[in-house]
Design a protein around this nucleic acid. Structure first.
Lengths: 112, 112
DNA sequence: TGTATATTCAACCATTTGGTTGAATGATAG
DNA sequence: CTATCATTCAACCAAATGGTTGAATATACA
């Protein structure tokens, strides 16, 4: 674990919003312009542009200019980092997930 | 994908803070009282208590009373849910991670 | 060159967040 | 009961977030 602190703050912070997660979902399927993205939300263009800046800061997406428009796509390198953080969290949860299994087995009945 | 929206907001929101991630790390190893936790940070007791409420709202920890103190531990069921979200995110990233491999192979040299 | 299109920037506003302090509540020990 | 320890609640504050509108910038097109 290096100095992931700020990056993790940005990464998780960026993921803590449904619009941004939806943007990620969309651009994970295809590279889209800002206006193409903006069409999907009941938000102003500027608001979507701001969301994109949050995602850019978190290095979850990159933009490249194509004529008048700006094309958004997932940022492959940061994506790998994100997956790594997530993997780390999964690891650190793992021991507890073992405990969970035991817990669930011991508790087949009395779940509220 | 059910209605994870609010939960994911809370989950990722809760994870977007180093103090809270550190609390999670600590309580993943052992059940700790609020004051035992608070000792580790240069924060008031109340501030730590607030962080714990955020983690509770995200169902990442649970508290149980033990005499005067309140013992904090990872919330096993929510932990499983969190792992599931994370797994989902990994899945949806997977296609792009394949693309990443290709990208990395094609780009052995020119990384800035 | 001027105009339209795509996007960002700046200023502003309301709400949320992360922190503080001090009072209130809960539980145990005398 | 009352004092004490552990924790929360309430009120407050500054900074960050998520949104708006309107002006500014960049590119293409005629």
């Amino acid at each position: 674990m290096v100095e992931y602190t700020f990056t993790l703050d940005n990464t998780f912070g960026a993921l803590a919003d449904n619009t941004r997660r939806d943007i990620l979902r969309r651009v994970s399927e295809a590279e889209l312009s800002v206006s193409q993205l903006a069409k999907n939300y009941d938000l102003t263009f500027a608001a979507v542009s701001k969301h994109l800046k949050v995602l850019e800061r978190a290095k979850l997406v990159i933009k490249r200019r194509n004529g008048k428009e700006q094309l958004v796509s997932l940022a492959p390198q940061a994506m790998a980092d994100a997956a790594q953080y997530i993997e780390w969290y999964k690891q650190f949860m793992e021991s507890r997930l073992d405990a969970l299994e035991i817990y669930l087995k011991e508790d087949q009945n009395g779940r509220q």
